[in-house]
Nucleic acid binder design. Sequence first.
DNA 1: TCTGGGGTCCTAGGACCC
DNA 2: TCTGGGGTCCTAGGACCC
Length: 389
Amino acid sequence: MAGRVIFHIDLNSFFASAEILKNSALEGLPVVVAGLHRRSVVSTASYEARAYGVHSAMPLLIAQEKCPQLVVVKGDYSWYEELSERFFQFMRQFSPYIEPASIDECYMDVTEPILRYKRPLDFAWMIQQRLYEEIGLPCSIGVGPNKFLAKMASDMRKPMGITVLRKHEISRKLWPLPISEMWGIGKKSQPILKEHGIHTICDLADEKNESLILTLLGKHGYTYIQNARGNDTNKLTYNTTVQSISQGTTLDRDVEDYDEIKTVLRRLALSLSQRAKNEDIKGSLISISIRYFDFTNAVRSITIQDYTSDASVLFEHALLLYDRNQNGKAVRHLGIGLGSLFSKTHSIDQMKLSLDDVKGHESIDQVLDHLNKQIPGIHLTTAAKLKKQ
DNA sequence: TCTGGGGTCCTAGGACCC
DNA sequence: TCTGGGGTCCTAGGACCC
């Protein structure tokens, strides 16, 4: 089969761009979107703010120290969602083969449509220009033969960049980068690799390091090696469904008082329930997450008999899980989650069985297994298996 | 300096069933 | 007495991403 052409489209400092769209007076200023509490961190920084060394995940207090004239805007998430929806709608006019990767980025398989352009990059350029003119959002586009290379490419020129990363170019464009720049390698794997002399993506791709990396990182190591060599074979997934929803909050100060914790859990249960109902979602896996004053975490979960979105059911089980796990440590953060979701509308959408679902599977059981993983809340089986039960 | 909020996916052990 | 093989579901924990 001939090679694919994948675009990775990444909105630049999306939340900050969204705020500037709403209020043009912010244009050109060092802006961050962040919570307005003592313990908030920066969600997104405009490029003007980045010039001061401010970046996302930085504690707000530190950001303000680095940039005293910093403009702090409280996030308006329903506005971001609306804009994000416009972004995806806009993209779909060019191709249905789109995989949303987050609120502000997607992959698009453009193997077919790009043939219609004399100069392939004109397609990327046109998308970028029109997205900016029609919706007001700047983006960077990465072009590659697979998802990984497209993703790495879109990171190379920002904002409003277009970068092509062909396989034969990786030794020049990709390999010199430090492993910290590599998608998928986080703050745990980095020190492990560096300790063993692996500092660049070139080191990851090097055959001499292969067995060492596999020993250190196992299956993940294998993925890193293949990606570093430009051999990502992951397909785009076009029907993405939500797997879980959650609602959490960091408390203003660490809390030991039981009644106070109970009050927070009740409030979280209410708002999670509201969201679930709005989105026509129910779930059977209820979980709580706790972060203690010392930054240790615990997640506890329980599976219930029926699918629910009921606030009191969420609250009761959350409290049960909390009680079971009492240890006297002061609590910094609390969250409630709902998983193993069932959504009528989503399930019906996905019942359309396509050839892609069947391709590549050897037996009917494999096909059913594949479908069961795609459609939450249902379980397909064969008559033979039912009889056995 | 002092560390958010909302997600995804993977692994692994134990219970339980045939 | 000492001993399977295969499978699913549940729970906990962890790495990573935007």
